[in-house]
Amino acid sequence: MKVWIAHLAVLAALAVLLAVLPAYHATNLARILTLAVFATGYNLAFGYTGLLSLGHALFFAAGVYGAALPVTYWGLSPLPAIALGCLAGGGMAAMVGLLALRTAGVSFMIVTLMFAQAGYLTLLYFGQITGGDEGLVMPDATALIPGLSPDTARAVIAFALFALALVLSLAVIRSRLGRVMVAMRENEERSRMLGYNPFTVKLTALVLSGLFAGAAGAGYALLFGYAGASFATIQYSILPMLYVLMGGAGTTLGPLLGTAAMFYLVDGAARITTATLLVVGVALVLLILFAPKGILGTLRERGARWIP
């Protein structure tokens, strides 16, 4: 119960921040929340189930285009489009998972990377429909929720997506399924001996993760008005991994914290230098060298055992 109250308090604080911050910062926060949905989904696969995927960009892009194509070509309204994008992400994850989960470890990383790359190239190949590298411009954000200003609508949708993601992920990891997922991460052979099928559990985790990624992709495309093949590049597989590593893999709030920390780190670096890639690279190397458990994971290890 305490855990639920703590998470609801975090959500309430975010809602207040969104309401009182000036427009520029509120938009930044909306962006962070949408990306944090992506990271939260990644955390379900990587943090809890131990599936280190390098192909999540594909699920994100499936969400982006699952929402953007119907909006562009059939004039679908944004909210059903987000639901559609979410399903597209999950469906894509199911297809990739059915094949890729036959491998593990390094092979799994490479197989997912290859599928994502094939997806990216396919988006380029059908550039006439998808817009390729130039992408598609989404309709004006004013249409998001009739009656609300674009900024408000953006904040409301981003918040709703993140709140849903956080609550769902908390519910999953506190359920039976969540505990079996952790068991898979810790010792697959032993869980198999106890009668759990590793393949089904991992596939479920990956599909859940894909649903989150799809929703984040759809939200990102519609809220910020752009869908392009670049969302399927490897960079968008690395980002959620970086966020989760930074915040703490296997912690519920780590993805949000990591996303926010990286966002402001890159933003701050962009003000002093143009070398923003350097920040990403150095952050990755330093994290893996000195704090592989991330911010919250390290705190939990150092005594704050209550961190969920």
Binding site: L52, V106, M109, M241, L245, L277, L278, G281, V285, I288
Partner: peptide, 18 residues
């Protein structure tokens, strides 16, 4: 193996930026 992949991804960004 998995840690070195993450580290070499970091290296990739560093070299590209350089």
């Amino acid at each position: 193996p998995e840690a070195t992949i993450v580290a070499t991804i970091g290296l990739l960004y560093i070299l590209q930026q350089a």
